[in-house]
């Protein structure tokens, strides 16, 4: 499990980060997912030619520290904004950074149409199955039985409806060229997710069409579990519905 690359990256600030400081909760998976994203961009030599579009969620705090030209989008609208950026700058690498509330709740239409158009952008979804920033509310990816502040007894299909498994939905669209779902719950998962991230950006660079990397991230605060139990809780809940793996590669 302890691949050499992990030793190297663990104690070094990624190239595209102005500072490692952040005020996210202990046990949060988002900083790890962000490191995967930034390292991939740098390793592919795209550092000086990348534009990011950031949604609204806990990860938005990284807008201040990401050393990438950024556009701050409204909640849910990042794929449309990325479309405008890419259409004007087709030679640049364009990504979105969104959470499940942003992409699958508020912005479902935007991401589906962007994928269906085959827009040559990479959307990165940090999926923790909960609105972390507002303090633990149900999202469209919350799994059946999951307790949130708006599903106090656990998500009930009859009352709250079923979760949307977004990666699988997008993979069925002709315009989607690459879809992968990984996680950051273990060192091995991080390495696998990083390979997916690399493939997604290579897909964009080869102008093959839309790419999505869905990263399951721990949110012990929003899940109301002890910090140390985040990874195992994810494995028993979120990862059972949002199954990890490469869903599409063209």
């Amino acid at each position: 499990m302890n691949e050499p690359v992990l030793h190297r990256v663990g104690d070094k600030l990624p190239l595209l980060l102005q500072s490692g400081e952040h005020d996210l909760c202990p046990g949060c998976g988002e900083p790890v997912a962000l490191r995967i994203l930034l390292e991939t961009i740098a390793e592919l030599g795209m550092a000086a030619s990348t534009v990011g579009v950031v949604g609204i969620g806990c990860y938005t705090v990284f807008s201040r520290t990401l050393d990438v030209d950024l556009v701050q989008a409204l909640h849910g609208r990042a794929p449309s904004v990325a479309t405008g950026v890419k259409r004007m700058l087709p030679d640049k690498t364009v990504f979105t950074l969104q959470g499940d509330g942003d992409m699958v709740n508020e912005g479902l239409q935007e991401v589906l149409h962007t994928a269906a158009r085959g827009e040559n952008v990479t959307c990165v979804l940090l999926n923790n199955g909960v609105f972390g920033e507002t303090g633990g509310h149900m999202t469209a990816t919350s799994v059946i039985g999951q307790r949130t502040k708006t599903s106090l007894e656990g998500r009930d299909a009859d009352y709250h409806g079923y979760p949307i498994v977004i990666g699988d939905l997008i993979a069925r669209l002709e315009g989607a060229a690459y879809v992968g779902r990984g996680s950051v719950q273990s060192a091995g998962a991080v390495a696998r997710t990083k390979r997916m991230m690399r493939k997604a950006f290579e897909t964009q660079r080869a102008a093959k069409g839309f790419s999505l990397v869905e990263v399951l991230t721990m949110c012990p605060t929003g899940w109301f579990v002890p910090t140390a139990e985040g990874p195992s809780y994810m494995g028993e809940t979120l990862a059972q519905v949002h199954m990890m793996g490469e869903l599409k590669a063209r």
Binding site: L15, L16, Q18, S19, E21, A42, A47, A48, S49, T50, V51, S63, R64, T65, L66, D67, V68, D69, L70, V71, Q72, V85, L89, K92, T93
Partner: peptide
């Protein structure tokens, strides 16, 4: 303009309604 040319220079730009800027 956020056109990618300042990415990785330590002086990258952000276009935001929030007036936040970047750390540097």
């Amino acid at each position: 303009a956020a056109d990618g040319t300042m990415s990785g220079t330590g002086q990258s730009r952000i276009i935001s309604p929030l007036g936040i800027g970047k750390r540097n």
